[in-house]
Each structure stands twice: as structure tokens, then as C-alpha cells.
Amino acid sequence: MVPLAHILALSVILFTLGVAGFILRRNIITIFMCIELMLNAVNLAFIAFARYLGNLDGQIFVFFVIVVAAAEAAVGLAIIIAVQRNRGSLSIDDMNSMKL
């Protein structure tokens, strides 16, 4: 069987990639997708632990993370659409003031 350390390593690498994208990218939709990547890395860690501790609670938590990610994606994308309509641009460099 696969050692737990290897699965957690995969999870950490994906999480770091998500953080890297979050910091380095300018397009707001791409930033949002990096957030989803981070959430998935965390899901993998939960399932790995659920398997290695023999406890199904990890999988239940992943279930809730997926549901919350869905709700968050819906609202986040609606906000992005509204912001694009108001400012005409999807680059976060242009979203640096609270004024409409």
C-alpha cells in the first residue's frame, strides 16, 4: 500500500501550487480556480487520514467541503460577473479601490 507520507506529499504539492497561483496570477477567475485547487488538496489529505485511521469521519468532512465549495463557487462567480460589469476588466490590478 501507498505510505501515508506520499499521499500527504501530493496533497502539499497541490496546495503549494494553489497558493503560488493565488499570489502570482492577475486574472480573477484563475485566482478563483487556484482556490479550488487548494480545497482539493485539503480534501485529499482528509481522505488519506480517513483511510489510515480507519475512521469515516474524514470522508464526511470531504462531503461537506465539496458542498461548501459549490456554494462558494456560485456566489463568487456571480460577484465576479457583477464586478466585470462595473469595471469592465477581469484583472485584479484594476480592482484596487472600493469606489464603484
Binding site: 501530493l10 504539492i13 497541490l14 501550487l17 494553489g18 503560488a20 497561483g21 502570482l24 496570477r25 484563475t30 480556480m33 487556484c34 485547487l37
Partner: peptide, 9 residues
Amino acid sequence: AILAGLSVV
């Protein structure tokens, strides 16, 4: 997964 993750970023 890692290669695709790199591609996302």
C-alpha cells in the same frame, strides 16, 4: 495531478 496542477497555474 501535479502536471495538470502546474498547467492550471
